[in-house]
Amino acid sequence: VSFKITLTSDPRLPYKVLSVPESTPFTAVLKFAAEEFKVPAATSAIITNDGIGINPAQTAGNVFLKHGSELRII
């Protein structure tokens, strides 16, 4: 599955597209996205474009099915 993750704390709204296997734990996606944007993973969260928080204790495939591919990291 592929996710387009936007960094909301930067006024330029940079984004990265990450492709991972469906079975990947979403905690790993969060950690990798945080490292890519050089923000601390421990204090970061991934939310939907509607501002709904995503529980990272599920697979990337589940997140994709529930929330789609466009996400934000805060």
Rank of each mutant, 00 (worst) to 15 (best):
S2K: 06
S2Q: 07
F3Y: 02
F3S: 01
F3A: 00
K4H: 07
I5Q: 01
I5M: 11
I5Y: 01
T6M: 05
L7R: 13
L7H: 13
T8M: 04
T8K: 10
T8F: 09
S9R: 06
S9A: 11
S9P: 11
D10A: 07
D10W: 03
D10T: 05
P11G: 08
L13P: 04
P14Q: 10
Y15F: 04
K16M: 09
K16N: 06
V17F: 05
V17M: 15
V17K: 09
V17C: 03
L18M: 14
S19Q: 10
S19N: 12
S19W: 02
V20F: 15
V20W: 13
P21S: 13
P25Q: 14
F26G: 07
F26R: 01
F26Q: 00
F26Y: 04
A28S: 12
V29G: 00
V29Y: 01
V29S: 00
L30I: 12
L30M: 10
F32A: 15
A33Q: 00
A33W: 02
A34Y: 15
A34M: 09
A34P: 01
A34T: 14
A34R: 14
A34F: 14
A34K: 06
E35F: 08
E35Q: 10
E35N: 12
E35S: 08
E36L: 06
E36R: 10
F37A: 02
F37R: 02
K38N: 12
K38L: 07
V39Y: 12
V39K: 05
V39S: 06
V39T: 12
V39W: 04
V39M: 14
P40A: 06
P40K: 04
P40Q: 05
P40M: 04
P40L: 04
A41H: 07
A41S: 07
A41V: 11
A41G: 03
A41L: 06
T43R: 07
T43S: 14
T43I: 04
S44M: 13
S44N: 03
A45T: 09
A45N: 02
I46N: 01
I47S: 15
I47C: 15
I47A: 15
I47K: 14
T48N: 13
N49P: 10
N49I: 04
D50R: 08
G51M: 03
G51F: 03
I52V: 14
G53V: 14
I54L: 02
N55Y: 10
N55W: 07
P56Q: 14
P56Y: 15
P56T: 14
A57Q: 13
A57E: 12
Q58A: 09
Q58P: 00
T59V: 09
A60L: 02
A60Y: 01
G61L: 10
G61Q: 12
G61R: 10
N62C: 09
V63K: 01
V63D: 02
V63A: 13
F64Y: 09
F64M: 11
F64C: 03
F64K: 09
F64V: 04
H67R: 04
H67A: 07
G68A: 08
G68W: 00
G68K: 03
G68E: 02
S69V: 10
E70Q: 09
E70N: 10
E70T: 05
E70Y: 04
L71Y: 03
R72N: 15
I73K: 01
I73H: 15
I73A: 01
I73V: 07
I74K: 15
I74P: 04
